[in-house]
Design a protein around this nucleic acid. Structure first.
Length: 116
DNA sequence: ATAATGACTGAAT
DNA sequence: AATTCAGCCATTA
């Protein structure tokens, strides 16, 4: 969490920054976000960041899913159900197994997109 | 400073 | 093809 007086954006803030750029109706994987942050293996930390995310945040955390196109964090519970709901609402369809087609919904940032 | 934790991931069985 | 194993990173205790 950004401590007061911290000038450089910490990992969390950078994660949020990236996720905020994800367009509706598309999704990205944790590992993908990690790559954009410059740490390809920091997928776990990314998940941790979203876990720590305050409810009042403007970050579309629900557009971040695991590499298999499914919902993580126990894959069940109110939080997970909510994520499915929000994504379906944006047009992201899930199969009976609870997985979506990443080939179809995965978002790739364009060259004109930067995560300052 | 060491150890434990977790919305992950890819390779090995 | 399904399941298990072991790294990886940043944060917290």
């Amino acid at each position: 969490m950004a401590r007061p007086g911290d000038e450089r954006p910490n990992f969390y803030d950078r994660v949020y920054k990236v996720v905020r750029k994800v367009p509706p109706g598309t999704v990205v994987t944790y590992g993908q976000v990690a790559v954009y942050l410059g740490s390809p293996a920091a997928a776990r930390a990314v998940g941790y960041a979203l876990h720590n995310l305050p409810p009042a945040s403007d970050v579309p955390w629900w557009r971040v899913i695991n590499a298999m196109g499914g919902i993580s964090h126990k894959s069940r519970g109110a939080q997970a159900d909510r994520q499915y709901e929000l994504l379906e609402l944006e047009g992201v369809r899930f199969g009976p197994e609870g997985f979506t087609d990443l080939r179809r919904y995965r978002w790739f940032p364009g060259d004109d997109v930067d995560f300052d």
